[in-house]
Design a binder for these strands. Sequence first.
DNA 1: GGCTAATACTTGTCTATACAAGTATAGATG
DNA 2: CATCTATACTTGTATAGACAAGTATTAGCC
Lengths: 241, 241
Amino acid sequence: MGTSSRPLALYEQIKQSLIREMDAGLLKPDDRVPSETQLSQGFNTSRMTANRALKELAEQGRIVRIQGVGTFVARPKPDAALLEIKSIAREIADWGGSHSCEVLLLAEETADVDIAARLNLRPGDNVFHSILLHKDRGVGVQYSERHINPAVAPDYLDQDYTRTTPSDYLLETAPVQAAEHVIEAVRCPSHVMKYLQIDAVEPCLRLTRRTWSFDRVATYSTMISPGFRYKLKGTFNRGTI
Amino acid sequence: MGTSSRPLALYEQIKQSLIREMDAGLLKPDDRVPSETQLSQGFNTSRMTANRALKELAEQGRIVRIQGVGTFVARPKPDAALLEIKSIAREIADWGGSHSCEVLLLAEETADVDIAARLNLRPGDNVFHSILLHKDRGVGVQYSERHINPAVAPDYLDQDYTRTTPSDYLLETAPVQAAEHVIEAVRCPSHVMKYLQIDAVEPCLRLTRRTWSFDRVATYSTMISPGFRYKLKGTFNRGTI
DNA sequence: GGCTAATACTTGTCTATACAAGTATAGATG
DNA sequence: CATCTATACTTGTATAGACAAGTATTAGCC
């Protein structure tokens, strides 16, 4: 109870209860979270209240919900890619060039529940994972992380990228409008953009052919939309991958 | 209908309808948005559906909802402070020093509906507005924007800041735990922080005494929580300001 | 074995209603 | 004039129920 002048809303109580269980390690990443029905019975409330609590936790990125399957604890985001980024950063530092450059790291990984839900895979299925860092005149760094359903661009890892770029290949293989690619867009406040003299890009960064030309600093990540598969390759599921 | 395989959810239709009206200029900033009851009748749906649509628009920052009052179109954030930031940026550029420095701009402004709702004021009431920019070794810039209910720190503009800093004064005048200050926190992904060699701060940036010590780049804004008034000065409203 | 259909379960959306809580206004009262 | 009060309106939360849509499992059939 503490200092709160009113008791917390019921859905907030459910949220905090689940967060406590996650922080305490009782609910580990990829664990199944009680269903809405179970939660509503456990807290003696209606399903809509449990639904709202889970919905907001999903928006916060703490859990992942998959319709028809269930709700799972999300894996913590940052640590997976950390080592790879560090190594790229060192590469860039060693180069020390003054021109714009590009570094690629390509690997095959397993999807966590979050990625899996977005790409319509199952946790543990393979994804292509690429990290790109761009540097321009020693001033800034642009970071991009991309997860790809292998069925969408099967030769993504094996291309010759001396004449083309991964994003070019992706756009050729998956010729969808740029807007279709976006499922998460990191918004860069326009006054910050002005100050950083970034004015050629929309405030809402997108996966497009040429977004690599900032001359100061920008950070974002891009992912491929689940809608891809319908437009490009027809419907497929785990069995066909 | 286009290419969508299913019709949009009803609450999405309401959201997009309102967004269209805002983009078309039919709903201008600070305009009152139809109430939940009106919307539900206009779209021939239930109030809960309208409620969900407005709730999500508010989370996106497109509208501001005030309990007991109504819903209003939010002002676009960036443009208000743009000129001031530019002038500060020029000041910094002119200085060209190599040491860490701090620039203050203090002004009295009027609150838009968003700020007003946060600080428990009415749109048009005065707020203190300070912008701080920090520069370190010519590499990066840290930007902070602060809106303050004048009743919380009445002498904020008139202090002698040669020996103390605005944040110090604020923390003395309003000795609340740091976490209490935060109502919006811009999350800096921890792997980006690592790469930028920012490791002394939590991933979730906060208004604390010493957050001015990045040596690369960081961008965030801080605001004073509405809960302030209860903890510090008792309850007051427009009449007492 | 391989395929199909029934089933049980999950999340997603929606309705109609209710009460709580906050605010603004008009009117009555002193 | 100032102050209180009733009223009407707003958003916030919660309920109980319903159907849609997606998924996994099982049972039955070829």
